[in-house]
Design a protein around this nucleic acid. Structure first.
Length: 489
DNA sequence: TTTTGAGTTGTTCGA
DNA sequence: GTCGAACAACTCAAA
């Protein structure tokens, strides 16, 4: 063991918090000065450099972390460039002999980390890695055959059988500072915000950073979680936790959430309904870890021959919220304005792109990636694959969401639709989810003209449903002709 | 070892 | 109006 007086580097990535941060706590416990650093290295994220909304969030979260570091007597050093080169340079500049980090699990980041850790270790640097952004190490959760789970429910039962996701650590009161601070770039100079006007509206909806995360979590524990099970499906209400972007950037620890909800609130149904959602996040990371090709390819190989359509016009209408189906359009507009979309509506809009328009799920995943403040490779990829039917434990192919039915069921008063599509505000409930069916005597006083103020449906539901079902049925036939099956039997 | 039943989020049709 | 059946193929654990 090296002298306790040498400095430690804490490499922050998707763990932008001080509380319950194992890498930071361990570095402080080691004794010497601690140098926290964030490295902006988007090229190392494979095909998934952060999109515009993510970059906005990141810029705010880093500013928050810098502020909080100051309160603990420290600073956040910010740099850009290749991670390996920056870390080596920092080690040389500061005389640090150890690097502490919390593990990342996404394919590109994981590969980068493996190489980098080996390289640092071979140069005599001590590298300490912690499992922190997931509840459990994916490699250690396997089924009775020793293979990764591919179905959620057995996986979920297994998670519940594991007593405790491990120790949580308190926020350090004081982070020992070095005598001299290495150079740091201003967060603004990272140019995370390509175009200020396109992201500044996000300020109205979100408070990035650890403090914002904690406030939101406490608010949710105090109120939202009590009727989570009944309200989380209603997009017109704030029935969800809205913690997804905070979780993505590691501003709150999933272990802390799991612990707080499970240990202090028991197993009441509405609370376990929320734990289930946390477990779905875990399952997405788990699948991506075990099947890393999934970030760009269907888990179910049968889908490699699916007859996806190229259709720039309807794709554009979907992106702009101009499909003529109010629930779909409301969701896409909520996404464009707030950088977020209610989960129920994510399913409906995704299903519409994939099944009604028969456009490749990867195209939709890419658009969400650019627009979501909570864009998360594991959640986004697995969500889209589930919808398309090519993922693990996927929606059955015949489950084609009917946007009108979904609207009347989950937004019966049309509150959500009216909020995001003001053109429809004057319609009675009966027509708000299918305005093209309203007679002129209704449309005229509402000041609405279908095809002018608001589009007619870009595709007929029954036609699209039949077309999709035929395409999905065709996958089965192709399998017979090629003589192979997805299970490889 | 083999069999059996159930599996996040649905829709449509016909009785 | 309500209700059950049908809409695949595959995974996993319990019997």
């Amino acid at each position: 063991m090296k002298s306790n007086t040498s400095a430690s580097i804490v490499w922050f990535r998707q763990d932008l918090r001080l509380e319950d941060n194992a890498a930071l706590a361990a570095a402080v416990a080691r004794g010497g000065p601690v140098i926290p650093v964030y490295i902006w290295s988007p090229d190392e994220e494979g095909d998934w450099a952060p999109g515009e909304s993510s970059r906005w969030w990141l810029s705010r979260s880093l500013a928050g972390l810098q502020h909080d570091m100051g309160q603990a007597g420290s600073r956040l050093v910010v740099r850009r460039g290749r991670s390996a080169a920056v870390l080596r340079s920092l080690l040389a500049e500061t005389g640090a002999t150890a690097v502490f980090m919390n593990r990342r699990y996404e394919p590109a980041a994981n590969r980068r980390d493996q190489e980098l850790m080996a390289s640092l270790a071979s140069n005599g640097t001590d590298v300490f890695v912690f499992d922190e952004s997931l509840l459990f190490d994916p490699a250690r959760v396997l089924n009775q055959s020793g293979k990764p789970y591919r179905v959620f429910t057995p996986y979920w039962n297994r998670l519940l059988s594991i007593e405790d996701p491990g120790k949580r650590v308190p926020k350090p009161v004081l982070i020992p500072a070095p005598a001299d601070w290495p150079k740091s770039t201003d967060v603004d100079r990272l140019q995370l915000l390509k175009n200020n006007s396109s992201t500044e509206r996000l300020e109205r909806y979100w408070v990035p950073g650890e403090n914002g995360a904690m406030e939101q979590f406490k608010k949710f524990l105090g109120h939202g979680i009590h009727d989570y099970k009944t309200r989380h499906n209603i997009p017109g209400e704030t029935g969800t936790s809205r913690l997804s972007p905070h979780l993505h950037f590691g501003e709150i620890s999933p272990r802390r959430m799991w612990y707080d909800i499970r240990k202090t609130h028991g197993e009441e149904p509405h609370k376990s309904a929320y734990l289930r959602q946390l477990a779905w996040r875990e399952f997405s990371y788990y699948l991506l870890y075990h099947f890393p090709f999934c970030e760009n390819a269907p888990l179910n190989e049968t889908f490699k021959v699916f007859p996806w359509r190229e259709d720039p016009d309807t794709l554009q209408a979907w992106k702009e919220g101009q499909t003529g189906y109010p629930l779909v359009d409301a969701g896409m507009r909520e996404l464009a304005v707030t950088g977020w979309m209610h989960n129920r509506v994510r399913m409906v809009t995704a299903s519409f792109l994939v099944k009604h328009l028969m456009i490749n799920w990867r195209t939709g995943a890419r658009w969400f990636w650019e627009k979501l403040v909570d864009a998360d490779l594991a959640n986004n990829t697995m969500g889209w694959q589930w919808t398309a039917g090519c993922g693990a434990d996927a929606a059955p192919y015949f489950r084609v969401f009917n946007p009108v039915l979904q609207g009347t069921r989950f937004d019966p008063s049309g509150e959500y639709v009216r909020q995001w599509i003001p053109e429809l505000a004057g319609l009675p409930d009966r027509y708000v989810h299918q305005p093209w069916k309203a007679p002129a005597s209704i449309l005229d006083p509402a000041g609405l003209k279908i095809g002018r103020g608001y589009p007619a449906p870009i595709v007929d539901h029954n036609f699209a449903r039949t077309r999709a079902l035929e395409a999905y049925a065709g996958l089965g036939e192709k399998r017979i002709f090629t003589g192979s099956s997805p299970g490889g039997k």
